[in-house]
Design a protein around this nucleic acid. Structure first.
Lengths: 239, 239
DNA sequence: GCCGCAAAGTTGGGGCTCCAAGGGTCGTCG
DNA sequence: CGACGACCCTTGGAGCCCCAACTTTGCGGC
């Protein structure tokens, strides 16, 4: 606002305002570097810097050779997490109820517990675990990543089964009583940005889910979602 | 990795690796621009760009006149959201149970429902609402922002009361039956970045909380938390 | 032994330029 | 009429430079 703050911010704020109030709708082209220098009477460096800031904020995207464009605001996908068993666990099921064609691939392998996973499953370090890696796609585009860990003894026939954790554990005589999820946000790791085709500047929602049988953690998973495309809803009954 | 990708990325990846594997512990100084150009045999632009990328990733902070330093990994504060009434609603209560000195300030005023708030409270546009703005601090430093909206008729004596929404509504004969929270992540608005003293590159967790009496929404609030300092935990009973 | 000041180093804003890679457009040629 | 190539524009990487504002350090004087 003040005339004293950096000129590149003047450009950033003006464009941001135009995007927010709809003057520049999604898909609209942003003036090029050369045009910005003329329009705002700033140097090339300032124009370039302003565009970079808007890119890292996730408001615009740059296409080399073409220009910068207001990013298509991806529809926020609500993921509803209700009390069980009214609604089943997997995020994929939530997505399908919204009429989206969701497909997924998975790989199963064996691994040893890392310090973090050992802590979450209350197992000794380097305990033998079965790891399942999921990649969910919605209409072909990558939607979310998930990695699930559980003790080997419960994971038999995992590759053939389509049942969720609750049902599968129940077949082993283990009754899941509670699911806990912890959500926070962070910068995507390079592999995640790659797998999820994340544009620069987006963060991910990281959901840590653990299935409990009483006081024993039975399965834990890390679910990674593009932060700008998902909202997760939790419902808690009162009284 | 490949020798073909930009040189600034070589610098970024090398420093990022050193931070992740502990070679550069929190607080450790990063080589200055001049040192980086010598060490990695790159130009000033590349060194500068590498540092900027690491800053926007939230891994390091720059102090003018001094240098860049590995950011102190702020302790992730868990906020547990259980079934009610075993645990009360406000985030502040969760924080206090962790033995942190939490203080808060609030301002109450009247406002009209914006389209978004009207939708959430299922009220006509420009319905009269009481708005309460909270700023929570932990050990003096700003922790979280919250804005609560409720119809004026329930908000009498709001400024004198210390009770939560559930108890206050109950005094008006309204029984809150459910709390729904939606969490997503986004770039902080300038006012939020300012109020929460957010370093560049951090995102916020935005929790939308609504208190329901049956099928009627009674109160809704927007809670904004620094994304890198908070994790929110939800517990869902099964069966 | 301590204070204060000056010099050196550092970030962050800003400017200018060159170049490779790629997108768009238009006109020419088969 | 359709395919292809030339030319212009745009992004993004990279280099170098100047300067204001600020921190740190070290030295000289009291």
């Amino acid at each position: 606002m003040a005339t004293s703050d950096p000129v590149y911010l003047r450009v950033v704020e003006d464009i941001r305002r135009q995007i927010n109030d709809g003057t520049l709708p999604p898909g609209a082209p942003i003036p090029s570097r050369a045009q910005l220098t003329r329009k705002y009477q700033v140097g090339e460096t300032a124009a370039r810097h302003a565009l970079r800031v808007l890119v890292t904020e996730g408001l615009i995207i740059g296409r080399v050779g073409s220009g910068h464009y207001v990013r298509e605001r991806p529809i926020l996908m609500p993921l509803h997490r209700w009390r069980f068993p009214e609604h089943p666990t997997p995020f994929a099921a939530d997505l399908q109820t919204q009429g989206r064609r969701v497909t997924w691939e998975w790989q199963i392998d064996s691994t040893e517990a890392t310090p973090e996973i050992a802590r979450r499953l209350r197992l000794p370090l380097s305990a033998k675990l079965t790891r399942t890696r999921y990649l969910y796609r919605g209409e072909g585009r990558p939607l979310q990543l998930a990695v699930s860990y559980e003790p080997v003894e419960f994971a038999a026939h995992l590759d053939e089964e389509r049942r969720g954790v609750v049902a599968r554990m129940s077949a082993h005589g283990v009754r899941i009583t509670e699911i806990r999820e912890t959500v926070h946000t962070r910068v995507p790791r390079p592999a995640e940005a790659d797998a999820l085709q994340l544009p620069a500047g987006t963060h991910v929602l990281h959901v840590e889910r653990t299935h409990w049988a009483g006081e024993r953690p039975m399965e834990t998973s890390d679910i990674v979602l593009p932060g700008d495309r998902f909202r997760v809803t939790y419902s808690m009954p009162v009284g």
